[in-house]
Design a protein around this nucleic acid. Structure first.
Lengths: 365, 365
DNA sequence: TTGTATGCGTTATCAA
DNA sequence: TTGATAACGCATACAA
């Protein structure tokens, strides 16, 4: 019962012409007489013919497929970015072949290897270490156009990104402006995320620039991030901290849950700031203070850069995408007496809020 | 400077043997002498050879690629499900070619058409109307193994799903148990989602079975869903409603925001129940009452069903996946005096809570 | 304008 | 054990 798929050869036969003619008609390439043209089109219609991309790919050496690698689609940041890719790619004829690594460097390499073997025309990746990936290097040495997402530019590979360090400095300023002095930086998989590291670096730099104590770096295991009780325990070890900068919104939300478990209210006892600006964050009844980075927009930008490269247009690193600090109910002045620290919270110093507008032109990193 | 890609022919040449031999060695198929074997492997290594999937696909008529269509990755439910697919597919050799429709039926068909033309070996879809899609029908008539996600089974296509109607009945019982009588059902794209419709149907049926007033059906536009103010306005038109059942968690969270805008507190003035059980819902400091459906698990199930079919094993519709009503702080007894309705809220009738355990065997729909 | 033949990269067949 | 060859589906150079 298996319907033998109809090929262009069948169409040609039915139309009583050669395959080349059929190909020309169906592709509107070359020239053809109205008569043959008609017969071919009717034959194709009647046979329910459609081109198979494999044949084309083999012959044209272009698969019209783009490979995409992200750590995980379970994190809304990446999911939104991939949807951004889809949006930008729709109508271009390119399809997305997707892979996820689970934040694992070895898996990154294996995935890229596989994607390349599949004959992708281009590559869009977010990975553990783009600067040290044999597979990525090999892909690039094979002239496969590649762009990064989320990463600050690395190894000369163009990237669609926000300036993580600069954004983190903004968060620091906002915390200080509200009078926080003892801050904490919370991160999952610090070792396997240059984004987290760069954010910490910026946060740290700004604190030092203002002669404030270094923020406490709190690294979490996967288990701690997903279990509010464990997170709470971890949090209680740093009772002098009045503001937590979480490396992403997901974590920031988890921190609030943990704080509640400890009987701390946000922001009275503990301020929380996130990073990313995922959609859901703005719908929370206590809006999350965070850095809006518009992940979907990052995806669109990445796709545009890649399609430019695919069309032979040279692409050099564009400026970083804009971000905007979004104030929210989770960030306020600390109440010194409520946590057991021994320092006096400073009143807001007169640091003006730094904001960049996501709708105007990007700022330079 | 473009590196001409190395093919098996190059390897054969360098090893001084025929391509067939090289193929056999490299695939460990057929037999070969240790000597040749050695030469081939060394040649392959030195040339940096790797198979190109396109050639294989053409000859074997299998692309080792699975097509996946979902409405949007911006909704965490679908993103988590797709990640579930990835997890289940990793190691099987299958890759995921992905498409999204933006909840548009025409886009659904176009996407399936494209995926099929790409030579996918199987299809996993969530779409507007699987029962009325010419493209899907065509794919199936071409014997492309297909499974649905999220949909109650339709047109004889096996599905990985939860029993939407039954789950909704559970929600109704829970609402009634807490004493709610006037309820509302909130849905986005009601017309283009059989999931929403089935949930409403179950909710309605249970209300009627208990001789309660029909729940108010509140349909939202995209704009209303994303703008808390508009949602609030809509909500205020139904001030007699004491409990809202939102068709998904995303909406449920938005409703809370809107309620806050109206000066209504949740759950004192308005109870809210969601659907899906997305990861982030459980981290909220006011945990969302919802139906946990484990989207990731649905994805894994779908992938397993498909790989079974791909291996020629017949797959008939398995029972629906289990769901669990998760109680949360957003559902409580109504306070009759706080909203302007004229009816007296009933005390909880003695309806036992209905729960199914996601870790035990699935329940039958 | 049309058709034939070739090649894209791989595997399977089959004869040596 | 080996290797030449024929597909697979398509586009294109070239000849007619």
């Amino acid at each position: 019962m298996r319907t033998q798929r109809v090929t262009i050869k069948d169409v040609a036969q039915k139309a009583g012409c050669g395959v080349a003619t059929a190909s020309r008609v169906l592709n509107r390439s070359g020239s053809s007489s109205p008569a043959v043209r008609d017969r071919v089109e009717r034959a194709a219609r009647e046979l329910g013919f459609s081109f198979r991309a494999i044949g084309r790919a083999l012959q044209s050496r272009r698969s019209m497929t783009i490979g995409c690698l992200v750590p995980s689609l379970a994190n809304p940041v990446f999911a939104e970015a991939v949807q951004g890719l889809q949006d930008a790619l729709s109508g271009t004829g390119y399809q997305l072949l997707i892979a996820s690594s689970g934040y694992d460097a070895a898996a990154d390499d294996a995935a890229i290897e596989t994607l390349v073997s599949k004959g992708i025309d281009g590559l869009i990746v977010t990975m553990v270490d783009p600067g040290d990936s044999p597979a990525l290097a090999r892909a690039r040495s094979r002239d496969i156009p590649t762009v990064l997402m989320f990463h600050d530019p690395v190894a000369g590979i163009p990237s669609a990104y926000v300036d993580n360090a600069e954004a983190a400095r903004t968060v620091a300023r906002e915390c200080l402006r509200h009078g926080h002095r003892r801050t904490g930086f919370l991160a999952l998989r610090f070792a396997s995320s240059d984004r987290s590291r760069n954010r910490y670096a910026g946060f740290l730099a700004e604190c030092r620039a203002r002669a404030l104590p270094d923020p406490v770096l709190i690294e979490l295991s996967e288990a701690e991030a997903n279990t509010p009780e464990k997170l709470a325990a971890l949090l209680s070890e740093h009772s002098d901290v009045t503001a937590i900068f979480a490396s992403n919104d997901f974590l920031a939300i988890a921190v609030q849950k943990a704080a509640r478990l400890l009987g701390l209210s946000v922001p009275e006892h503990l301020s929380v700031v996130g990073f990313d600006g995922i959609e859901i964050g703005r719908l929370l009844d206590v809006p999350l203070a965070t850095v809006e980075t518009a992940p979907g927009r990052m995806g669109r930008r990445a796709a545009e850069m890649l399609t430019d490269m695919l069309q032979g247009r040279g692409v050099d690193q564009p400026p970083s995408l804009p971000f905007a600090f979004r104030s929210g109910a989770t960030l306020a002045a600390p109440c010194p007496e409520t946590r057991d620290d021994d320092q006096v919270a400073a009143r807001p110093s007169s640091v003006p809020p730094v904001q960049t507008d996501p709708d105007t032109e990007p700022k330079r990193g």
